[in-house]
Design a protein around this nucleic acid. Structure first.
Lengths: 246, 246
DNA sequence: CGATCTGTTGATGCTCATCAAATCCAGTGG
DNA sequence: CCACTGGATTTGATGAGCATCAACAGATCG
């Protein structure tokens, strides 16, 4: 049977026994489908459960009082959408669905149970949360200090490595079912400019993009171009393997 | 006796008994002084302890392979510099000292001890970590979707509220011992432009800045100008008080 | 099969970077 | 106490990167 994406992801940190996997599986609710454009969590909601993206594509985002939308991170299968089990009264972001997706959820009690009684699993979840923060930080660097072309290149490098880490692909292609508008909202630029920057990367023969499939045509040059160092993804154990044949 | 800044900060979440405060105090190492320009933690170090800023001013930052520096967050007295007790082999950021500062540290064992045996304190620490993430997210919004003048205004609003929450000030002034270069590195703009934007805020009579003291001259207009909603600081319990008389 | 969303292209102007130089200021040593 | 020094702030001139506005082509979908 096929390994689920979240197991695939967590296995990059440490390998999990069938029993451990079973504990996680049993903690999950029935999967629930959400259509494109729906919100799983809305800014202002009370925190109630943690969502796990099983399949599809989503993002965490904020809308500022002025009405501009900013994507905070992309969520791919295997990602926990909102791990930092929030002690706050209100959540200050939304989880939006970018392509038809299925989610499972974990109640806070289940999570606390894991933290209390399954220290190895607890470490895996903590590791996953650590990566979330680390990605946020790298996105800050991306927005604050790279021009738009490198910014896009960097984002695409990240998404390829994360896709490989989740077992979503094993070559240079990955599924990227988002519009250029979405990409722009993640990078803090307009969709018009996103389009132009995308063309530039195509002309440089770094990427191709068709049918929602993105291919990084030359990984070595792309990495260099993007100034990409995967260290922040904390996949030490797996990166050599993940970059093999790229 | 004077309440220490980190207690002041945590009390915004829930009040702490003298015994609880004592447990925290006893978990702290001897304070250690660091001079301006020194690094408490360097990119690439192994995680060993958690630092608490007792006095002074510091920041978390990253230097990209290309050599550009990006400030990820400012640290003021009462802040834990690196709570996310990292399970990684390497830390991917540095903690830099911007003004002469004193730090105390907590070993990972002490932290785990608190998590295991003092659930109320554990919640307070988690709350503090939550704010860290939330600030990161809001900074992403700031960099991604606000022009430089609003960006600076927003940053200054945040720093005033945080300073009040840590008991560092009780009026419109707060100590800001950083150069315009540093501010620029936080906002992803050059120091030249930082200077010009600063002058604009002065001309609008929103701020004054002299002797490392920043004053927000008109809180209501400044908030509006900056598009500032303090919700992300998760100080619900305290914000009404914190904004009193502003 | 029309209606709407997404991608693409062009023209124009503003925001911000870059380069360069002039003050201002705090600290240091004679 | 003053002359020196190096960092921080300020100012001006120029240009690049990106936003904005507008229009059209292609893809998608009920």
């Amino acid at each position: 049977m096929l390994k689920r994406h979240f197991i695939h992801k967590l296995d990059n940190y440490q390998s999990h026994t069938p029993e451990e996997i079973n504990i996680l599986e049993k903690a999950l609710s029935e999967p629930r489908r959400f259509g494109k454009g729906k919100d799983v969590i809305k800014q202002g909601d009370k925190p109630e459960q943690v969502y796990l993206l099983l399949d599809g594509w989503a993002c965490r985002y904020k809308i500022s009082p002025q009405g501009k939308l900013q994507v905070l991170t992309y969520l791919i299968p295997g990602d926990f959408c909102n791990i930092h089990i929030t002690l706050a009264n209100q959540i200050d972001y939304s989880i939006g669905v970018l392509a038809p997706s299925t989610f499972a959820s974990l109640s806070h009690e289940r999570i606390y149970d894991i933290y209390d009684n399954h220290p190895r699993l607890a470490r895996s979840l903590n590791w996953s949360a650590l990566i979330d923060i680390s990605i946020l930080q790298e996105w800050l660097v991306n927005l604050g200090s790279r021009p738009a072309d490198q910014r896009l290149a960097h984002l695409l490098c990240e998404l390829l490595i994360r896709s490989r880490a989740a077992g979503l692909t094993d070559d240079h292609h990955f599924r990227l079912p988002v519009t250029q508008t979405h990409l722009g909202e993640a990078m803090g630029i307009t969709y018009v400019h996103t389009n132009r920057v995308m063309q530039k990367l195509r002309q440089e023969r770094l990427i191709t993009f068709a049918n929602k499939q993105l291919k990084i045509a030359n990984w070595r040059r792309m990495k260099e171009y993007a100034d990409f160092d995967p260290m922040y993804l904390h996949l030490e154990r797996a990166v050599p393997e993940l970059e093999k044949d790229l």
